[in-house]
Nucleic acid binder design. Structure first.
Ligand SMILES: NC(=O)c1ccc[n+]([C@@H]2O[C@H](COP(=O)([O-])OP(=O)(O)OC[C@H]3O[C@@H](n4cnc5c(N)ncnc54)[C@H](O)[C@@H]3O)[C@@H](O)[C@H]2O)c1
Ligand SMILES: NC(=O)c1ccc[n+]([C@@H]2O[C@H](COP(=O)([O-])OP(=O)(O)OC[C@H]3O[C@@H](n4cnc5c(N)ncnc54)[C@H](O)[C@@H]3O)[C@@H](O)[C@H]2O)c1
Lengths: 255, 255
DNA sequence: AGGCACTCGTGCACACGTTCACAAAGCTGG
DNA sequence: CCAGCTTTGTGAACGTGTGCACGAGTGCCT
C-alpha cells in the first residue's frame, strides 16, 4: 500500500485545478457519494473529462475502469499532494479594509490556513481584535513567524508599503507570499509569490466587453469565450519575471 | 494617423499582462519619463523583454528602434485596447465582509470602475452606506443595471447563494461577472466569468511549500519557481468548461 | 462463461505561449 | 555621410497545455 508517491512533477496548470476538484469532491463526499466518474467530475468542474483524467493520473491515483474514482480516496490523494495534510498558518500584513475582511472570513481556518497573526504599523490598529485575532505591531512579525512556524504571508497593505511588507516577511522567514497590492514585488528567487489583482481582473473583463461591442454589433456573441484558463503558470528558470496571469474564465455544464 | 486599429485578436495571455504594463507606464508617466525601452519595462514588470515587445506589437503600437516606446502614446494605446476610454460601472451583489471591503476601496473608481450599486438580501444591510454608496435590496438589481448601464457584476455572496446571484445578474442584463465565491458558476456561454478564489491561491502555495520540504531538504531551493503564469486563458469553443487558473507567480528584476 | 456496456489511462496531434536570435531601423558623433 | 551603437519587430524553435480517440481493464447481466 505505501505506494510511495513517485514524486512526479505535476504541471502547474494541473496544480491550479486540483484545489477545485478537491472542493467538488469534498462536497460530493458530504452528500455520501462514494464513487465518481471523470465525466461527472468534469461536468461539475466545467472542464473536459479527458483533462480530468489526465490531471488525476499525475496523482498516480487509481480510478477503477468501468466504475470511476473512489471519492474518499481521491480527496485523500489530492490533499496529500497539495500538502494539506497539516495546517499552514498564515500571517497577514495590513489590517485595513482588506486585512479585516480576510481576518473576519472563517473560510481560511476551515480550509487549513489559520490566521496565525495580523500586523500593522498603525498604532491605532494595534490591539484591536479581528476575527478572534489581535492585531500586533509589525515589529513583532519575526517573532510571530518564528514561534508559529509560519511559511505563508499575505500582503494587504497600501500599494506604497507592499514592497516593504514583502521584505519584512522574507526577512522574518516566510517563503511564500500572497500579494493583494497592485505592484510587482521584488523578492529573492526562492520565494514563491502569487498575486491577486482585482483591477487587472476588471480590466480583462473590460477588454472583452469592449471587444464585444466593437467586433460586430450584429453577429451574436459567436463562440462566447469559454474554456479553462491556463493555470497560474510557472515558466523556466530564467532570472526575473513577474507579471502573472490571474483568474480565468469558467463555466460548468449547466445541464 | 487614424491608423484604425487592425482589430487583431490579442492572445489572452497578453491581455492579462497589458493591465500591468499600463500601471507601470502610468507610474512612469507621473515621474515624467517620456520614453521607455522594452528592457526597462520588462525589468519593472518582471518579465522577458522579448515578451514585452511581442505583447506591445499586438497593439500595432509603434516603438522607435534605437530609442524605445513613447510612454504617453503607449498608455493611450493600451487603455484604448482594454476599453478603458470610458468608465465601466460595476454592481456588487452581497454586502458582507468582502462586499464592504470592495465598496470601501477607492481604487476601483479611480481605475475606471465606479461602484454603481451594492445589493443584498438581508434587510438589515439594506439602507446602510458603504463607501458612499447606499446598499439596496436585491430586487432593485435589474433597475440599477438598466438605469446605470452596468455590464459588470461582482458576486460577493456566501457560496450557497453565488449561483443565484449570478443568475440574477445575468437576468438583469450583466454580461461579465467577477466571482469571489468558491464555486464554479453555471451561466450562459455568452457571459464572461472570471473567478478570484483565495483558497485556491493558498492551496497552490501550499503545494509548493510542501514540495520544497519533500523534494530534498538539502539542495537549496534550486531554480526557485519564477516566471510568468499563463494568462487567464480561454480555450476552444468547446461547450462547457470551468475551472480557471488564477493568480500567478511574479518577480521583477530586483536589480 | 461469455458478451456487453462502461470508464480509465494515455499516445498523439494540435494550439498556444515563451524565448532566442537577428535583421532592419533609427540615433549620435565625427 | 558613414560607422557604430541601441533597440525594435518578428521568424522560428521550443515547451507547455488541451482534447481526441482508442486500447485495456472492470463489473454486470444473461
Ligand atoms: N479593499 C479592497 O477591497 C481592495 C481591493 C483590491 C485591492 N486592494 C489592495 O489591498 C491593499 C490593502 O487595501 P485596503 O483597502 O485594506 O487598504 P487600507 O488602507 O484600508 O489598509 C491598509 C493597512 O495597511 C497598514 N499599513 C500601511 N503601511 C504598512 C506597513 N508598511 N506595514 C504594515 N502595515 C501597513 C495601514 O495602517 C492600514 O491599516 C491595497 O494595496 C489595495 O490596493 C484592496
Ligand atoms: N471575506 C473574505 O475575506 C473572503 C475571502 C475569500 C473568499 N470570500 C468569499 O466571498 C464571499 C463573501 O464573503 P463574505 O465574507 O463577504 O461573506 P458574508 O457572509 O460576510 O457576506 C455575504 C453577504 O451576502 C448577502 N447575501 C446572502 N445571500 C444573498 C443573495 N442571494 N443575494 C444577495 N446577497 C446575499 C448576505 O446578506 C451577506 O451580507 C463568500 O463566498 C466567501 O467565500 C470572502
Amino acid at each position: 500500500m505505501p505506494t510511495e508517491r513517485p514524486r512526479r512533477r505535476i504541471p502547474e496548470a494541473t496544480v491550479a485545478r486540483l484545489p477545485v476538484y478537491l472542493r467538488i469532491l469534498s462536497e460530493q463526499a458530504e452528500e455520501e457519494v462514494e464513487s465518481i466518474s471523470s465525466d461527472r467530475l468534469a461536468e461539475l468542474g466545467g472542464v473536459n473529462a479527458a483533462k480530468v483524467r489526465k490531471d488525476l493520473s499525475y496523482l498516480g491515483s487509481y480510478g477503477t475502469r468501468g466504475v470511476g474514482y473512489e471519492v474518499a480516496y481521491l480527496v485523500y490523494q489530492i490533499r496529500r499532494e497539495l500538502g494539506l495534510t497539516h495546517d499552514w498558518p498564515v500571517v497577514i500584513v495590513g489590517a485595513g479594509n482588506l486585512g479585516q475582511a480576510l481576518a473576519g472570513y472563517g473560510g481560511f481556518g476551515e480550509r487549513g490556513f489559520p490566521v496565525a497573526g495580523i500586523v500593522d504599523v498603525d498604532p491605532a490598529k494595534v490591539g484591536t481584535v479581528l476575527g478572534g485575532v489581535r492585531v500586533r505591531h509589525i515589529d513583532e512579525l519575526s517573532q510571530i513567524v518564528q514561534s508559529k512556524r509560519v511559511n505563508i504571508g499575505v500582503v494587504a497593505t497600501p500599494t506604497a508599503a507592499a514592497q516593504d511588507a514583502a521584505e519584512r516577511l522574507v526577512r522574518a522567514g516566510v517563503t511564500s507570499i500572497l500579494n493583494f497590492a497592485p505592484v510587482v514585488l521584488s523578492v529573492p528567487r526562492s520565494i514563491e509569490v502569487r498575486k491577486v489583482d482585482l483591477a487587472v481582473e476588471l480590466q480583462i473583463l473590460s477588454y472583452h466587453e469592449q471587444r464585444r461591442a466593437t467586433t460586430s454589433t450584429l453577429r451574436s456573441v459567436s463562440g462566447g469565450v469559454s474554456g479553462i484558463g491556463g493555470g497560474g503558470g510557472v515558466s523556466g528558470p530564467g532570472g526575473t519575471s513577474g507579471i502573472g496571469g490571474t483568474a480565468a474564465t469558467t463555466r460548468p455544464a449547466s445541464a
